[in-house]
């Protein structure tokens, strides 16, 4: 069952003389109990998208179009009080760099008490008990509840952030780059924990990252974002084993992997300026496979096989393109 859907969502930032279209028409269906990954390089709009869902955008940010539906009901049109009852209780976020967002002058337990008494209607006593349970769940001794944030290592702070997001028993957790900047062992522990939470509590997880190898072993579904749009989405295995969009093909060339000996290839060039009017495909200036139509018409995200979507005019040439994409010289044609 799909219970969170994002429909043609546009989130823009008002600049002095222009509008920056950070998220420019995103469609996404999130199914219960799944882990869905959203990948893309920095600046493609991942954080803007999740802040939009949580309605915690920067002051100059606004939802320009589209809708976010929870159990079929528009979260944009619903009353403020109803929305507040859903956000944090049903849908919680682990913000990017959340490790540093804990207030340094308060004991960690105070953050838990605040969320649970103000947003969850619990008493202080209940909150402390629950916080202790959550600490154990994420593998930290509950004696440390009364410590200050600086007394925790980076990996522990990230686990505290996860525990905090779980405070009100949400159904969905949105984790924005939860393992970026963590050591591999801690990264592994955090990913394992998200995996376990999903199987224990049927939790739905939206996992945002710039690193394909982070999603490969944890997610069921994947959406690849580029310049404010989703360029490919579907089952994770399908996409990683047989990418249909040239950007996805490029991403899988770009990562070192212990199991591979291939030469790494970068995607040269840069992202278009989203404050300007876009003409044609957003990836065209970096795409080694572009043809005339790519410069003039923006490709739509279309379902060309059951459950598989891509936004590319040459989606049906994928066999040929996948072969070509393995060649270094192909990508060198586009100069940085």
């Amino acid at each position: 069952m799909s219970f969170l859907t994002i429909e043609d969502l546009k989130i823009h930032y008002q600049l002095k003389n222009s509008v920056f279209k950070a998220v420019d028409g995103v469609d996404l269906t999130i199914k219960e109990g799944q882990i869905i990954g959203i990948v893309g390089e920095s600046g493609c709009g991942k954080s803007t998208l999740v802040k939009g869902i949580m309605q915690v955008m920067a002051r100059n940010g606004f939802i320009a179009a589209g809708d976010i539906k929870y159990n079929g009901e528009s979260m944009i049109k619903m009353s403020e009080s109803k929305r507040r009852a859903i956000l944090w209780k049903d849908i919680a976020m682990i913000p990017q760099a959340s490790m540093d967002s804990l207030n340094p002058v308060y004991r960690v337990v105070d953050a838990f008490i605040e969320v649970m008494t103000l947003k969850g209607g619990k008493s202080k006593k209940e909150a402390i008990v629950r916080a202790g349970e959550l600490f154990e769940l994420v593998g930290i001794d509950k004696k440390r509840l009364r410590d200050y944030p600086h007394q925790f290592s980076g990996g522990m702070k990230q686990r505290v952030a996860i525990a905090l997001a779980l405070c009100l028993d949400p159904k969905i957790i949105i984790a924005d780059e939860p393992v970026t900047a963590l050591d591999v062992i801690v990264q592994h522990q955090v990913l394992t924990m998200l995996n376990n939470l999903r199987s224990q509590f049927n939790l739905t997880v939206i996992l945002i990252t710039h690193d394909i190898s982070v999603v490969a072993q944890t997610c069921d579904e994947l959406a690849v974002m580029y310049a404010g749009k989703i360029v490919e989405k579907g089952n994770i295995r399908d996409i990683l084993k047989s990418p249909r969009h040239p950007y996805s093909m490029g991403l899988s060339n770009a990562f070192p992997d212990l199991l591979k000996n291939d030469k790494l290839i970068s995607i040269n060039g840069s992202v278009p300026n989203l404050a300007l009017e876009q003409k044609g495909c957003r990836f065209v200036s970096r795409c080694p496979f572009s043809v005339d139509i790519c410069h003039t018409h923006e490709p739509e995200l279309t379902e060309y096989e059951e459950g598989r979507y891509a936004a590319c005019h040459r989606v049906h040439d994928y066999n040929e393109l996948q072969e070509l994409a393995k060649g270094v010289s192909v990508w060198d044609k586009v100069t940085s």
């Binding site: 591999v184 062992i185 990264q187 592994h188 522990q189 990913l191 394992t192 995996n195 690193d211 394909i212 190898s213 982070v214 490969a216 072993q217 944890t218 994770i236 295995r237 990683l240 084993k241 899988s252 990562f255 992997d257 212990l258 199991l259 591979k260």
Partner: peptide, 19 residues
């Protein structure tokens, strides 16, 4: 061994191992 097992792979067929 733990350090190596913790390195994530971009291959979706490789299992997330226990450390």
């Amino acid at each position: 061994m733990a350090l190596i097992s913790a390195v994530p792979s971009s291959d979706p067929d490789v299992e997330l191992k226990e450390l």
